[in-house]
Design a binder for these strands. Structure first.
Lengths: 345, 345
DNA sequence: CAGGGTATTGGGAGCGCTCCCAAAGAGGGT
DNA sequence: ACCCTCTTTGGGAGCGCTCCCAATACCCTG
């Protein structure tokens, strides 16, 4: 029995645990990793040694020997203010954190600001420094997903990039959320329902517009392209779009806005135009952010289960990494939204 | 010259880079790590080989051999909603990310929810899985800082825990921010200035109260403890405190609230009590969050340079890890705040 | 021209773990 | 009792890097 080198300080090694338990290194490793091919007696002995020594595996050694990292990266495109804004970012992080809580997986946060950082990220991924990647707010033309697919790197994205998404993705039901919002407006007697959309290259924004259209025709209202104003998810964009709408269709009596922040911009314009909310114009937002609650009047909004989305993304990724993808098709999750009715509608 | 093993797939190793450059492994390593003890010709040869092969060092191997990890942890106590709320979290993350951008350092996100996760974190840190720790929103009685100090683990905290903080810390100037806010109220002719404080166990909240007191006496106003209502940084707490204040001193004409969220609660109560803002009561918040901008009327608030705080925390930590602490005393940074005047005052 | 630096360099010895092969032990059937 | 199979076990061989020592090359000095 090889006596483990005596080490005064430092953390205990597997070798020491094995020596203490009176078994070989291989056996100790098997116990630590939960292999079934160990007798009960041995397992208990090793577990006791682990507890006595306070052994914690050395992650680096594990990664080196096992060719894995036990870490996943959450990649956040920093300029994408829509994502980085409240409540998206912290909620996603919370959800991911929750899903990872009783896992050995570490969460690496990677902010991608400019092109240089983007290249560094690509290098990172190529160097296999993580077992998988969570990609949020990817654009349809982002080369990153392709790169990941080529590398065979497990990956989950938030929000499908288009109808024929090939990557595993988690999304909220943008179509249904928008549809329900507009249906709600119609049920309150509104007849000239306009919409301010997000950037339509973003698939989710397109789906919200689709939902709007579906609800409009389901209600038997006359579709009118002049009631549709595209914007860019910013407050200023929302304001500009609202001005356009008022100019084109001054008779509108409701607006479904594809984000709360844009709704804030729209409300400002409506106030300046002296349209009362909700008496003259009803307003519904999307996201149910802090802004919605504190707007005056409080904004009716479509809530997305963002934290849950984070959790599901992480779970999907863990599955992907473990290789237990059920069928051949890519798992894609669509979570329901909820309409939170407040004073603006 | 030992021929490097030919490997079809896979990433290139140091050994391969060395072979390609026609040098030894040690020399290649020296170049990669920027050692000055290499001739220019050799350096160039190695750099060329690195570029041609697209070599990226294997992090795990480095960590194992070098007994470091090139990673730091951002530890976030999840139940601490004050911190996790907008804008704190994302701004800190941004700042930290910016400071780390041209470093090899990785950012690990660790959410600490319950006691179990807390123990796991302690184990983590004991196992030296990171080179340093960024601790945000620590309570004065949190055992974590002590643990870190015992382990000799570099650490920076956001917000001193008390006047005699021993750890390197980054903070905004809570005292001066509060003082300036109250001074502003006084300069607008307010004479009965009340305050709603955060939880006073939080040192920052205490400092804000100190700043309030300083401004009150500097203005020659009569200090009155009935004008001071403690709360807990929540909207409901702010509302309750506002009710207390109105009951005790119905003649108050201004309130300095130690956070925007509490200010939102207070505003609600003032509206119910039919006090106009700012005509009857002027309101000033703290944080300059989204809530402040969208409140009605828009809330005057004290802005903290949170992103900059994140950046400085990271820099301090990197210094600490590099061991180049200038003197013996712990570096502690206090950043200035800025009063953003809006319609509520 | 010898002697004693100083600047470079190569490569051995690990770091602590996983993988895997071969050996030892434990039954079971005939 | 013997052979064969299945289970359990030990430990060698790396994973790719850093650290460091010894070797070599080069340069002054007297």
């Amino acid at each position: 029995m090889a006596a483990a080198r005596v080490r005064s300080g430092g953390r205990p090694t597997l070798e020491e645990v094995a020596a203490r338990a009176g078994v070989g290194r291989g056996t100790a490793s098997r116990v630590i990793n939960g292999s079934p091919r160990v007798s009960d007696a041995t397992r208990e002995a090793v577990e006791a040694a682990v507890a006595e020594l306070g052994y914690v595996p050395n992650r680096a050694a594990r990664a080196l020997a096992g060719n894995r990292t036990d870490a996943i990266a959450l990649v956040v495109p920093e300029p994408e203010t829509r994502f980085f804004a409240e409540p998206y970012f912290s909620a996603i992080v919370r959800g991911v954190g929750a899903a990872l809580a009783d896992t050995e997986m570490q969460l690496l946060l990677t902010l991608v600001g400019n092109d240089r950082e983007r290249r560094r990220l690509a290098q990172y991924l190529t160097a296999h420094r993580v077992d998988g990647v969570l990609l949020v707010a990817v654009h349809a033309d982002d080369p990153l997903p392709e790169l990941l697919e080529q590398l065979g790197m497990p990956c989950v994205i938030s929000g499908a990039r288009h109808a024929a998404e090939t990557l595993p993705s988690v999304d909220s039901d943008n179509f249904e959320g928008a549809r329900a919002a507009v249906e709600h407006l119609v049920s309150r007697g509104r007849r000239q329902v306009a919409t301010i959309t997000g950037r339509l290259e973003v698939y989710g924004a397109q789906r919200r517009l689709d939902g709007y259209r579906a609800a409009v025709s389901a209600a038997g209202l006359a579709p009118d392209e002049r009631l549709i104003a595209p914007a860019d998810f910013t407050e200023e964009g929302g304001a500009a779009a609202m001005r356009d709408l008022l100019a084109r269709r001054p008779d509108l009596d409701a607006v479904f806005v594809a984000s709360d922040v844009m709704a804030a911009g729209a409300r400002q314009v409506l106030r300046e135009a002296e349209r009362r909310i909700p008496e003259d114009v009803a307003l519904v937002g999307f996201d149910d952010s802090v802004v919605a609650r504190h707007m005056h009047p409080a904004l009716t909004s479509v809530r997305q289960p963002i934290e849950e989305m984070g959790r599901r993304m992480a779970q999907l990724l863990l599955d992907e990494i473990a290789g237990r993808t059920p069928g051949d098709e890519r798992p894609s999750v669509v979570l329901p939204t909820e309409l939170v009715v407040r004073d603006s509608s």
